[in-house]
């Protein structure tokens, strides 16, 4: 009886593989695909429409509206916006801040995780809880004192203040994640190195960091992009034009009366392009990293 049903199951499985005998196999599957494709088009529509209108002349826009295809590639709107807000400078600020935070926050996370995950210092659970709470705290509950204190020490409206703050914020998350990763680090390797007379500092830089570099690079990319995307604290801290990041510059200009339709879409496009570029550059590492984040 049992063997019979097993055999039936086996042949049914084969049939399912050979003929695709999964329910709803007929024309229904095209309907499902069509629905999912329509949704994809809806999701991508804003990207397409912004790009189309960023390369139109204002005259073309006012006569044909936002849905028409552009007659040619007209870049003057983008160039004019770029020059007016000194966009190159904003890009540089964003790159500098995000890059510095990515490196420093990973360094901080590694030091903490080395003590917690490998050194197993006393009270490590409480330290982790503290970092976790810090990571969930809303920045609103730190913003005013940070604003006040940074003015007191002369760091207000400086990129350094933003770098320091986000190094701590991202480092808190990195510590939480890396401590778990380093907690599983093979002990034998560390002990072997220690027997060979390597100091702890050497073990960290010559063994732990190189071996966990795939995880560290994922973290670094994440910190870079998260910092790039930040808005609230940079908005408060970077008030002068020379220090602003890309999201702050674009966010503040939104709804500005000087901005006409094509220039607004040009500004949106300039915000989209670096973000999509990072996504494409880092895509492989990122999809791996999203999974790492999910497991945490």
């Amino acid at each position: 009886m049992t063997s019979l049903s097993v055999r039936q199951a086996g042949s049914a499985r084969q049939a399912a593989h050979a003929g695709g005998r999964i329910p709803g196999a007929g024309p229904g599957r095209w309907a499902v695909l069509a629905a999912l494709v329509v949704l994809a088009v809806v999701m991508l529509f804003p990207f397409v429409i912004v790009t189309l209108n960023a390369v139109k002349t204002p005259a073309e826009y006012s006569s044909n509206g936002p849905l028409s295809l552009p007659h040619g590639i007209y870049l003057d709107g983008i160039i004019e916006f770029w020059n007016r807000v000194d966009f190159g400078r904003k890009l540089l600020n964003s790159l500098l801040i995000s890059g510095a935070v990515a490196v420093l926050a990973v360094a901080l996370s590694v030091l903490n995780a080395y003590a917690i995950g490998i050194g197993r210092v006393r009270g490590r659970l409480w330290i982790l809880v503290l970092f976790l709470v810090a990571n969930t705290l809303p920045q609103e509950a730190l913003a005013y004192p940070l604003y006040y204190l940074s003015k007191e020490v002369g760091l207000y409206d400086s990129r350094l203040a933003v770098i320091l703050i986000f190094t701590v914020v991202q480092g808190a998350f990195g510590t939480y994640l890396l401590s778990a990763v380093l907690g599983d680090f093979p002990k034998e390797i560390i002990e072997a190195a220690a027997m060979d007379g390597a100091s702890r500092w050497r073990v960290l830089w010559r063994i732990v960091v190189p071996i966990s570099s795939p995880t560290l690079s994922v973290l670094m990319i994440f910190f870079f992009i998260w910092t790039w995307n930040e808005f609230f604290l940079p908005l408060i801290f970077l008030i002068s034009n020379d220090n602003q990041t890309v999201p702050v510059a674009l966010g503040v200009l939104q709804g500005d009366k000087m901005m006409d339709a094509t220039m607004s879409s040009a500004s949106a496009l300039l915000g989209i392009v670096p973000a999509v570029a990072f996504f494409l550059i880092f895509q492989r590492t990122l999809t791996r990293g999203v999974t790492v984040g999910a497991i945490k």
């Binding site: 804003p46 990207f47 912004v50 992009i225 790039w228 995307n229 930040e230 808005f231 890309v246 999201p247 702050v248 674009l250 966010g251 939104q254 607004s264 500004s267 949106a268 915000g271 989209i272 973000a275 999509v276 990072f278 996504f279």
Partner: peptide, 11 residues
């Protein structure tokens, strides 16, 4: 992948 502020600018 967009900064949420840029998503706001787009919309």
């Amino acid at each position: 992948v967009l900064p949420v502020a840029v998503a706001g600018v787009v919309w």
